[in-house]
Every structure is written in structure tokens, then in C-alpha cells.
């Protein structure tokens, strides 16, 4: 039917995306491990997307793997990232007309994402986040961010420092000054 060109385009796009995801490209971690990933899924990373676009899809498929040189892209982190993009590549795109950025930010993570990001090894978790940030996968960074924020919610500064292994570079005096300044936020009901 000719009634909605826009919509048919959308369907076509989805088909193309699905087709393209059958094409596998190789990604190489900073540790040297090489992993296969669907093209559409891999292109959720803006870094990979730009590389694929400047090299041409054919080149990427037939030649050397794409090297992800950042030290955070370890074998384990890359495996996790591929797991995530392979799960999420067919998510509907964000419609800015209707989905308020603020509402989206406040939305809770899906069950799958929660389980995915709940990694016991904090070093790996941070690798995944840093690597996703390096590869420019906004959705995955958001998942990491929401996870960290939900973990530190309601904790004291000291607990946060211990959990996230953050160095306290304030002197006791500086810290006291901030606490004094912020006394108003601790007002009891």
C-alpha cells in the first residue's frame, strides 16, 4: 500500500538491519582476543560504526579484525559487551518527540540488563563501563551508570568510598566544611 511511505521504509530498515546482523565482523580486544559480532550489533558502538563507514563494510568483513586498543577492552569485557549489543541491537530507536529524556533517565533497568550488569568482579564491571564509553555505546554506559547509581543510593560517603574504592583526597577540615555547608540537606522530617 502506498499510504505510508515512512512506515514501509521503517520496515525495510528493520529487514536490512536484520540482514546485516547476519554478517559477522571481528573485534579484537586490547589483550589480543578476537571475537565475532553481528554487524548491526557492532554498529551500536559509534566507534565501530564510524570505522565501518570509513573503511566500507566489505573491507571490514573480509580483512583484519577491528582493533579496540583501549586497555579497558579486555577479553572478558569485550565478551560482555558483545553479549549486550547482540541482545539489544533490534531495540526500537528512541523517538525524541515522545520520549521525554527525563522520563527515560528515570526508567528502571530491564530485568535482563539488571542481571547482565550485576557482575561480582568490580574490576570487570568497570572494564565494561570504561570500554563501552571508549567504544561509544551510549545505551550500555547508561546501564552501567544506572547500576552504579542504584548501588550507592542511600549510602554514606565513607561506604561509597569503600565500595567503589575511591581515594578520599579531602582533608578532614575540607570535609567538615562541606558537611557544614550542606547541613540543610540532612534536615529531618
Amino acid at each position: 500500500m502506498a499510504d505510508n511511505a515512512d512506515h514501509i521504509d521503517g520496515d525495510d530498515n528493520e529487514d536490512v538491519r536484520a540482514q546485516q546482523n547476519l554478517i559477522k565482523i571481528k573485534l579484537k580486544s586490547s589483550e589480543g582476543g578476537i571475537y565475532e559480532c553481528g554487524l548491526t550489533a557492532a554498529k551500536m558502538s559509534d566507534l565501530v560504526k564510524n570505522m565501518v563507514e570509513s573503511l566500507g563494510t566489505d573491507a571490514v568483513v573480509t580483512t583484519e579484525p577491528i582493533i579496540l586498543g583501549n586497555e579497558a577492552v579486555t577479553d572478558a569485557a569485550l565478551k560482555k559487551i558483545i553479549e549486550w549489543v547482540e541482545f539489544h541491537w533490534d531495540d526500537p530507536p528512541v523517538d525524541h518527540d515522545f520520549e521525554d529524556e527525563k522520563d527515560r533517565r528515570n526508567e528502571e533497568l530491564s530485568h535482563w540488563d539488571k542481571q547482565f550488569i550485576d557482575v561480582d568482579d568490580q574490576a570487570l564491571l568497570f572494564d565494561v563501563i570504561a570500554a563501552a564509553n571508549y567504544m561509544d555505546i551510549k545505551g550500555l554506559v547508561e546501564v552501567g551508570a544506572k547500576h552504579i547509581c542504584s548501588k550507592i543510593r542511600g549510602k554514606s560517603c565513607q561506604e561509597v568510598r569503600e565500595m567503589l574504592k575511591i581515594t578520599n583526597d579531602f582533608t578532614a577540615e575540607e570535609e567538615d566544611a562541606i558537611h557544614k555547608e550542606n547541613a540543610w540537606i540532612y534536615a529531618k522530617d
Binding site: R105, D121, Q122, A123, L124, L125, F126, D127, I129, A130, N133, V141, E142, G144, A145, K146, I148, C149, S150, I152, R153, L164, K165, I166, T167
Partner: peptide, 19 residues
């Protein structure tokens, strides 16, 4: 690796933006 200190200011700001 398991310390949040490793992240840059920008990433740190992004991660904390959900508070």
C-alpha cells in the same frame, strides 16, 4: 581496575548523572 578513580571526569559525571 576495581577503583572508580580510574574513570575520567567526563565518564564520572555521566555515571553520576542518574542520582
Amino acid at each position: 581496575k576495581n577503583s572508580m578513580d580510574r574513570f575520567s571526569n567526563n565518564l564520572c559525571a555521566l555515571l553520576l548523572s542518574y542520582l
